[in-house]
Simulated scan of single mutants.
Amino acid sequence: RQLIRKAPRKKEPVNINEAIREIVELVQGEARKCGALLAMQLAECLPSVEGDRVELQQVMLNLIINALEAMSGIDGLRQVHVSTGEADGGCVLVTVRDSGPGFGPNGADHAFTAFYTTKSTGLGMGLSICRSIIDAHRGRLWASECSPRGALVQFTLPRHHDVSSS
C-alpha cells in the first residue's frame, strides 16, 4: 500500500530476516504453481539494517519473482534459495540464488541497465529500480553467474547504528 501511495521513505531499524520471511510467505503459492522450491537460510542474531521496510521488501519480491520467471522454461530442479549473513564493513548480506539458465553471456554485467531485459515480456526496469532502492539505502547490489547454471543476485546494506543517548 505504501508503494502505491508514494509514501516518503522511512529510515528506521528493519529486521531483514522478518521482512524476507513475509515476502517468502507471500510468494510461496506462486513458487508452488511454478513447480519451484523456495528455501531460506537466514542467519540468526543478524543486526538490523536502517531503511524503509516496504522498499526493501519490494527489492526482495522483485528478485524472487525474477528468479521464478527465469526458471519457468527449464526442465529439472527449480529452486530459489534466499539467504542472509553478515558481510565485511558492518554490513548485512542478502543473497538470492536460482537454478535457472542464468544471465547468459555478459548478461550479469548489463542486468541493472534500464530497459535491458532477457524476457520477451519484460520491460527491463525491475533490477534497475532495485539498484536505485539499494543505492538510496547506502548499500550495494550486484549479480553473477552460478556454475553449472543459475543466477546469483546479492546486496549488502549497512547495519543500523543505535544512536541512543545515555
Rank of each mutant, 00 (worst) to 15 (best):
L3I: 07
I4Q: 08
R5V: 02
R5F: 03
K6M: 10
A7G: 00
P8R: 12
R9Y: 02
E12T: 12
V14S: 10
V14G: 11
N15I: 02
I16H: 06
E18M: 04
E25K: 13
Q28E: 15
A31R: 09
R32T: 14
K33A: 15
K33L: 15
C34Q: 14
L37S: 13
A39F: 01
A39R: 13
M40N: 04
L42E: 12
L42C: 11
A43N: 02
A43F: 02
A43L: 04
E44N: 07
E44W: 00
C45M: 11
C45V: 10
V49G: 11
V49Q: 10
E50N: 08
D52M: 02
R53Q: 08
R53L: 03
E55D: 02
L56V: 01
Q57P: 00
M60K: 04
M60L: 15
L63T: 04
I64C: 11
I65W: 07
N66D: 13
E69K: 14
E69T: 05
S72Q: 15
I74M: 14
G76A: 09
L77Y: 03
R78D: 10
R78M: 08
Q79K: 13
H81W: 09
G85D: 11
G89W: 09
V92C: 08
L93M: 12
T95C: 14
T95Y: 00
T95K: 12
V96D: 07
R97V: 11
D98P: 07
G102A: 04
G102Q: 07
F103D: 03
G104R: 04
P105H: 06
A108H: 13
A108V: 01
A108N: 08
F112W: 01
F112N: 02
F115M: 05
Y116M: 00
Y116P: 01
T118H: 15
K119T: 03
K119F: 15
S120Q: 14
G122S: 12
L123H: 12
L123S: 13
G126W: 11
I129K: 06
I129M: 13
I129D: 02
I129W: 06
I129P: 00
C130R: 05
R131F: 05
R131M: 05
R131V: 02
I134E: 06
D135F: 10
A136H: 12
H137I: 08
R138Q: 15
R140S: 09
R140N: 09
R140Y: 10
W142S: 14
E145T: 05
C146W: 01
R149I: 02
R149M: 04
A151E: 04
L152P: 00
Q154F: 03
H160T: 00
H161A: 06
V163I: 07
V163P: 00
S166M: 03
